[in-house]
Each structure stands twice: as structure tokens, then as C-alpha cells.
Design a protein around this nucleic acid. Structure first.
Lengths: 242, 242
DNA sequence: CGCGTGATTGAACGATTTCAAAAGATGTGG
DNA sequence: CCACATCTTTTGAAATCGTTCAATCACGCG
């Protein structure tokens, strides 16, 4: 057992870059054993984008599959006149690249400096054939993603501006916890405009609601885009409409 | 060839109830060959619900997997004070029953008289193990579902009331076409309240927008909840904001 | 026929948007 | 390291779209 563990550790260190990946356990890749991880590491490329740069453009042929390793990105859909809906924010371990009819139906843009892994679609599909548990994990993650989308529809369709912002902060808090950090403070690197486009309100309304929550003593602004959630229970109560 | 075809037809007729299922080709089941369909038919139950009856309740243990065979159902999420968001309407061939942490995160309610197939989860999972292509198809359908959810977020977050109703009608038109019917007229059996809860507006606003579209000569109301789309291109133009 | 449910229409109200301006951050180059 | 330019946030006041409240209408069914 001790010997095996030591062997596994030595092996992992040899598998570059996946063996040392900080989000491996949380991402799709987490289902693979060290001896299977080699196959994945062989077909992966690492890539980076600076603040505001584009990763995926709507309508592009879908020949990649991606996993965020550091930073935050936004997934957005646009109307012809420029109106924008952000349908999700991607954090480390989140995947993107699902396509409909072979094309992407959304843009992905770096919110902060961003690092991610990229798999070429044909090679990735070959790997999925070889390791069926990859496909099962992918279905599980798509299913979770679908549940999150439905929750966000509830936010967009039913909630007031204040409830929307409280929901947003609660959601980021839970996500922070799932990624192994504290529930507070949380890192909120996106602009008021980004948050507004996610919640279906304007920049100004978002700002006003943040101010209101601060004046009520529920949150405090810290340096480096961190926000302290001073009363998470009250925030969740507001988010749930009562 | 003629002999084989005849044999296949005889075989299908023997597989009850799946062999004669009107939506088999469109649903998950469509990936199975006739000789594989036996295994599915063995574990399926048919069930029915009347108008307004409940099929799934949020929080219930998820021990079923379902496919609509006739009628329409709504998938809805509720807030404590009764506010309701309909996150989707289910038509024949649509599946439902995906769960998070073993529990359903939504209610499913019959909008019209409803018929559906039900699979017990353990038996269904065993079948997925036996036929991996079932899992691949399921991932494809979940992926499509996710894309539809994101499209709906764009509707909820960005569009005006009139654009929302035009989007709704265009969507039903395309769905009608995909199910093998005409793009117009379409069957709209849900109430104004249901449609409003789907689009994030009130009953009254929904009604007003229908009236406006009728006065503009874009739609006409027919008997039996049918709506004639008199100018689909204009409707889509309005839906897309221009 | 009379009741109940859903649809429609009108009028007043209000939450959020829009428009505008100022204050605060951030980064660049001299 | 400061001064300038740019971007973001905040705050105020007016306008608006959709809601709310209320009344009437239409349809199906016992």
C-alpha cells in the first residue's frame, strides 16, 4: 500500500502537464487513473488568454474541447443590436466546448487572465471511446450544468434586482466552497456590466443593489476584487425571496 | 432485401409497446436496432396523467427516467412565495428525469392529457451499460437541452415582452417541424399564465402581446388551441430584435 | 341556464431603465 | 513619481415598460 502510493506519486509527477494539474480531481479528468492519464496528457495543449480576449466565437466550427485551469471566463450570447446575455461564468475545473450541429452557439471571453487546456475533438472522441467512464462523467457534468441553467432561469424570470444580486453572491460563495476555498470572502473579478448582463439588469441597477447590500451590513468590499459576505444566511434568505 | 424488411416489420410489431411507438425514431430509443429494442420494451411502463396532474415533484428521490409519448407537460421551479418559473415545455419524444444528487430539482406537470414511458432507474442504468450508444445519445440530447436553456436565458434576460412572445411562437414552430408537422399552424395548449411564467412576464402582458401580433396580421387564432403563423419570417425578425 | 375558468382590456402605479454627470481606479509614458 | 487618458463605478433625476388591480368578456360543462 505504501509502496503503491509512492509509485503512484512518482508516476503522476512524470505525467506532464496533467499529473501536476491543480484542478484534475475536480474536472472531467478526475475519473482517470494515473496509468490512464498518460493518454490524456498526450493529446492536451495548454493555452492562455489575456483579460477581454476571445476564446470561442459563436458560429465557429467546433473542433475543440476545453477545461479552465486558472482565471475566469464568461459564456455569452448576443443579439444583432448588441444586447448581451452572459449565460455563465467559467471557473477552474469547468469545461466548455459542447456544440450543436458541429458549431458553437456562444462566445467565450476571458474575464481575467485565463489559462485552459485544449483537446482536439477527434482525438478527444477517440479517447472517450477508449475510456467509457469519461463519457459518463461528461454526461454527469452536462446534467449538473443543465440544472444550473434552470436555476438561473428562475433568477432571470422571477426575481427582483436585489434578489438577483443576492442569488449571484450566494452562488459564487457555494462555488468557492466547492473549489476548496472559503465561502467568504469571494473573488468577484467581473465588472458591474458583466454581472448585470448575467442577471438581466443594467450596470447601474447592479451597482445600486451592491450599495444597498453594503449599507445593510451584509457585504463589504475588500481589495483585489474580493467581497466579504458578512451574513451569508441573510443573503440566501433574500435570494430565495423572503 | 424485401424479405429482410418484411422480417424486420414483423419483428417490430411483436415488440410491445416500443415497436409501435410513434416517437421511437425521435427519442433516445431511436438508436436501438429492432433486435435490441426487446431489452428496452421489457423494462418500460406506460403511464398517463390528466390535465394539471403532477408527474414529478421537486425534492423527490429520482428513481425514474421518462419519455413523453403524447401530450404536453411543463417543467417548473418554484419560489417559497409561489412565484413560478417554467423552464421548459415537454413534447412527444422529449425525455425528463435527470437528477442532481439523486433528487429531482423541478416539478413536472401535465399541461394537457399526457402519456409517457417510464423506466426504473436501476434497470435503465443496466441497459445503458449494455448499450453504450444509449449513453452517447443521452449526452447528445442533454447537450441540445443545454443549448436550448441558454437560448432561453437570452430571451429572459435581454428581450422585450413582444420579442419574448415572438420567440416563443417561433420556437414552437420549429419544434412542430422537427416532430414531423407543419411550421404553421401550431398547437399551443398552455394557458396565457403558463406562457407568461415561461417568458418571465405576467398573464396580462402575454395576452396583450398576442393581441398586438394578431392586430399586426402576424398570427390568427384557430379552434382547438391552434395558432396560425401568418408571417413566420416577420415573427422571427421580431424575435431577434429587429 | 348558470357557474367557473381563462382571456381580454383599461387605468394607475412602480421597479427598473435611461440619460447625464461626477467621482474613483487603473495604467502609461514622460 | 506624477500627470494624463481611459475605464469603471457610483449617484441623481426623468422616463418607460411592464405590473398590478379591477372589471368585463368568452367559452365549456354539469
Amino acid at each position: 500500500m505504501t509502496e503503491n502510493a509512492a509509485a503512484a506519486r512518482r508516476t503522476l509527477a512524470d505525467i506532464r502537464p496533467c499529473g501536476a494539474c491543480p484542478v484534475r480531481g475536480l474536472a472531467v479528468c478526475g475519473v482517470l487513473e494515473p496509468d490512464e492519464l498518460y493518454a490524456l496528457a498526450e493529446i492536451v495543449h495548454e493555452a492562455h488568454r489575456a483579460h477581454r480576449q476571445s476564446v470561442i466565437v459563436e458560429g465557429d466550427e467546433a473542433n475543440g474541447f476545453f477545461i479552465v485551469t486558472s482565471g475566469v471566463a464568461s459564456v455569452e450570447k448576443l443579439l444583432a443590436d448588441g444586447r448581451r446575455q452572459i449565460v455563465g461564468f467559467l471557473y477552474p475545473s469547468d469545461f466548455f466546448g459542447l456544440a450543436v450541429d458541429g458549431r458553437y452557439a456562444y462566445n467565450v471571453t476571458a474575464v481575467t487572465n485565463l489559462a485552459f487546456c485544449q483537446f482536439e475533438r477527434p482525438k478527444y472522441l477517440a479517447l472517450v471511446d477508449r475510456f467509457p467512464k469519461l463519457e459518463r462523467r461528461l454526461l454527469g457534468m452536462a446534467s449538473d450544468e443543465l440544472a444550473a441553467s434552470q436555476e438561473q432561469m428562475l433568477v432571470l424570470g422571477c426575481k427582483t434586482a436585489k434578489e438577483k444580486v443576492a442569488s449571484f453572491l450566494s452562488m459564487l460563495s457555494e462555488r468557492s466552497y466547492r473549489l476548496g476555498h472559503l465561502r467568504s470572502p469571494i473573488w468577484v473579478p467581473m465588472t458591474r456590466g458583466d454581472i448585470g448582463d448575467y442577471l438581466g439588469v443594467t450596470t447601474e441597477t447592479t451597482s445600486r443593489m451592491f450599495t444597498k447590500l453594503r449599507n445593510e451590513g451584509l457585504i463589504a468590499f475588500l481589495p483585489d476584487a474580493m467581497i466579504d459576505l458578512l451574513d451569508i444566511n441573510s443573503l440566501k434568505k433574500i435570494a430565495d425571496g423572503g
